[in-house]
Amino acid sequence: MTTKSESYPLRRREVAKALLADRDDLIVVGGLGSCAWDITDAGDHDLNFPLWGAMGGAAAIGLGLALAKPEYRVLVLTGDGEMLMGMGTLATIALQKSRNLAVVVFDNERYGETGMQHTHTAFGVDLPAVASAAGFLSTGTVTNQAEMIEALPVILGDPGPVFRSIKVRAESLDFVLPPNDGVVLKDRMRKALAGGATGKAG
């Protein structure tokens, strides 16, 4: 129980890179903490909104974007601790039946930014089951590379709302920090979407 996720085969930075490799106009909300660093490590982008706070809010931010931009795919990439704090949002998303929204949890069963304490998922709380019960169209757990290859096109293209828990190794990695000015992060996303074009940061 206590060390199980330290030996999970999937590594979060590699999974993030695989998810974002051919992103085109994918909108990405990165949950507070490690996921914000993960999406930045995969390449900063005007359509990235990495969170430096607002724990529990990532999925709701993604819903607002998905409703406003139905022609775009929206990916919320967040951690298990962050998702647990905003679990009610899974019900809110299910009601909206957002076809263009995927919520992916990088589940290392730890609070990675505060000392690697266990989250509820370490003791068996099943987030995909919660999403399924709420009414997500597609849910599941990914534990290895073969399942990841299967899940990629579902996350990036299947009718949503899609939910996947990707069990990733509990590991402490270098910080890869995105811009931390919230106004800059908001404005670059809004401008990129208003312009209808993708812009690579920098």
Partner: peptide
């Protein structure tokens, strides 16, 4: 958008605004 808690609304409207 029927919310489960008010704080969802703040986050939702943040996403809405970025989406125009």
């Amino acid at each position: 958008v029927s919310l489960t808690t008010e704080e969802e609304g703040m986050a939702l409207l943040c996403g809405a605004w970025m989406g125009g």
